[in-house]
Amino acid sequence: MSDHVLVINAGSSSLKYSLIDGASGEAAASGLVERIGEPESRHLHRGPDGETSATLKIASHEDAMRAVISAFEEYGPSFDDIEIVAIGHRVVHGGSRFADPVLIDDELVAAVTELVPLAPLHNPANLEGIRVARQLFPDHPQVAVFDTAFHQTLPPEAYTYAVPLEWRDDHGIRRYGFHGTSHAFVSAEAARVLGRDLGDLNLIVLHLGNGCSATAVRGGVSVETSMGMTPLEGLVMGTRSGDLDPAIHAHLVRELGWTVDKIDRALNHESGLKGIAGDNDFRELTTRRSAGDPHAQLAFDIYCHRLKKYIGAYYAVLGTVDAIVFTAGVGQHSAGVRATTLTGLERLGIHLDPARNNHPTPTTISTPDSPVTILVIPTNEEWQIARETLALLEPHD
């Protein structure tokens, strides 16, 4: 019998879940409860017989988890037929303390609670998911897998900000990096596709979804990444600005009288592609760009320009690059982004094959003689969380 892990990703008003076969990565079921706490919540469940959707009132994460259990009972697969061996939780911020998955107990909950100031939008929701799951599944081992863990291998010159010592020592001001489960999974998959040992590879991994991050991976180890103390730094994203002059904050306070909270919200939720073109849906922007919309064109150009800058920077950090890997929604599905970003980098040994790039399901999109292989690899963060959960629970000699 396969070992199945129930993977939970609790957001502030949502609960995503997947029942994952740890060996194959196949999802026996998955779903999403969204708009928790609102008058009308939505529960989407994908089971053996297809997809079901219901609109109902779900007041809390506990109600959401009970709805999930009911969906398994009604639509399958039944927990009597598929045994859950563990529950794996995505936790966004592990600070500098957690470099590996950790078995959840009261001490772990206290430690993640202490890290809330570093991730006030994410860690409280993750903790609520943990609390509810421990209450409803008291006999199952539960494991926290941290988004930041993969990047705990960054060297000091990469994670240290040039700020006063007391900021760093007393308040944890440093680069942490995010999307770690995705970067770890995609790096291992790249090695498999290339038929090489991950320890021998230098990779640039580009996770391009609504949130975007780039990571330089040397021998399976993260040595540089674009997101910083928070997920705001780095590439242009759906609603996040990415890199900008930090003095802009002070300027907005002095000149417009804006509060810190207003600026924070604007940079996280009203900037990026949405701020430039009014829309963070890349498919819609692609349609508008094709119709000649100048705002959509500018958003596309800025997005690709920032990507190109990071590829060049990470090439310099690594010295040599074996492969560039595109993943997540935009990375997998936008041939235009890949082509525009990589055009002009031929002297770095990066040669894109247009026909391969435009294939409906691309994998290797570089020319056969390209010194740097260009790959498109779907990410699977849920499977990575399941694998790390099972690995932690395996007995060791």
Rank of each mutant, 00 (worst) to 15 (best):
H140S: 11
P141I: 03
V143I: 13
D147P: 00
D147Y: 03
T148M: 07
F150V: 05
T153N: 12
P155H: 09
P156R: 09
T160W: 12
A162M: 05
V163P: 06
P164L: 09
P164N: 07
L165N: 07
E166V: 12
H171M: 14
H171Q: 14
G172V: 05
G172L: 08
I173R: 03
R174I: 05
Y176A: 06
H179W: 05
G180A: 12
F185E: 02
A188D: 07
A188I: 06
A190Q: 07
A191E: 07
A191G: 03
R192H: 13
R192V: 14
G195T: 09
R196I: 14
G199D: 15
N202G: 08
V205E: 05
V205T: 15
L206R: 10
H207R: 12
G211H: 04
G211N: 00
G211P: 01
C212G: 03
S213E: 04
S213L: 07
G219T: 13
G220C: 06
S222R: 02
V223I: 15
V223F: 06
S226H: 02
S226R: 00
G228V: 06
T230Y: 03
P231K: 04
E233I: 01
G234W: 01
S241C: 15
D243A: 11
L244K: 00
A247H: 14
A247C: 11
I248V: 15
I248E: 08
H249Q: 11
R254H: 10
E255V: 12
W258Q: 14
W258L: 15
T259Y: 03
D264R: 11
D264H: 08
D264M: 10
L267R: 00
H269S: 09
H269W: 11
L273Q: 02
K274I: 14
G275I: 13
